[in-house]
Simulated assay, not measured.
Amino acid sequence: MTDFSLIETLRYEPEAGFIRLRLHLARLVRSARRLGISGADGAQAALLAAVKAGDGGAALRVRLELFPDGHIEVKTAPFAPLPQDTVWRVRVASTRLKSGDPLLRYKTSRRAAYEAARGEFGPSEADEVLLLNEKDEVCEGTITSVFLDDGSGILKTPPIACGLLAGVLRTELICQRRARVARLSLNDLARGDLYLGNSLRGLIRVNLLV
């Protein structure tokens, strides 16, 4: 039995329901199958039950956790979107990810590297923190995927092989051909407009402080 759980964090809107639900469920089922965790087939019912039991008339942040023994816990909290003109201050962590670690492509409760990176800067210093791997390749934020607009008309996002999560927003943009994978360095990020994003909040404009 594994010593970690699988996590999906979704956005629920009263009119639209769960945003990107199909992609979230597909990732959870795929991850559970590959890691030998049972119970993923009960995720959708658990999500619907949690919303029904809470305030289904308001936007929610919904966190689902699938534990190694197959049981599921769902927690909800009110969700307020960021203003459209939000620009996050982002700094680069000295903490490094290991590109050869296969678990990085899954969203799990193993968060030590991300917590260490986030802990390098206080809330007044950075809204999010960017992680590189041992080759100094750009990977991801602590809770976000990386997207670079270099003026080509298609966003660039680092490949999974660099050591990063297969984010749901990232997957959607690649499938829509609005993004493609490309290895990125910090120098590359200075040659265009940088965005971070996840399925909960969408794309967020970034001011990279180095």
Results as ranks from 00 to 15, higher is better:
residue 132 L to E: 07
residue 137 E to M: 08
residue 77 A to L: 13
residue 72 I to R: 05
residue 42 G to L: 12
residue 52 K to D: 12
residue 150 D to S: 10
residue 48 L to M: 13
residue 52 K to H: 07
residue 53 A to V: 00
residue 112 A to S: 14
residue 106 Y to V: 08
residue 125 E to T: 06
residue 68 P to Y: 03
residue 49 A to G: 13
residue 154 I to S: 11
residue 63 R to V: 09
residue 91 R to V: 11
residue 122 G to H: 12
residue 61 R to F: 02
residue 121 F to C: 08
residue 34 R to M: 11
residue 98 K to D: 15
residue 40 A to L: 04
residue 62 V to Y: 01
residue 106 Y to G: 10
residue 73 E to Y: 00
residue 44 Q to F: 06
residue 77 A to G: 12
residue 29 V to R: 15
residue 59 A to Y: 01
residue 40 A to S: 14
residue 92 V to M: 00
residue 44 Q to R: 15
residue 138 V to W: 06
residue 83 P to N: 03
residue 126 A to M: 07
residue 89 R to Q: 15
residue 87 V to R: 14
residue 75 K to T: 12
residue 57 G to M: 08
residue 79 F to C: 05
residue 138 V to Y: 08
residue 148 L to N: 04
residue 50 A to R: 08
residue 50 A to K: 05
residue 89 R to V: 12
residue 141 G to Y: 09
residue 99 S to D: 12
residue 59 A to K: 11
residue 95 T to W: 06
residue 89 R to E: 13
residue 48 L to D: 12
residue 128 E to K: 09
residue 80 A to Y: 11
residue 35 L to F: 02
residue 93 A to P: 09
residue 82 L to V: 02
residue 29 V to L: 13
residue 153 G to E: 00
residue 151 G to M: 12
residue 118 R to T: 01
residue 67 F to P: 01
residue 54 G to F: 00
residue 126 A to Y: 06
residue 83 P to C: 07
residue 71 H to N: 05
residue 88 W to E: 13
residue 122 G to T: 14
residue 87 V to E: 10
residue 143 I to E: 02
residue 44 Q to Y: 08
residue 130 L to Y: 01
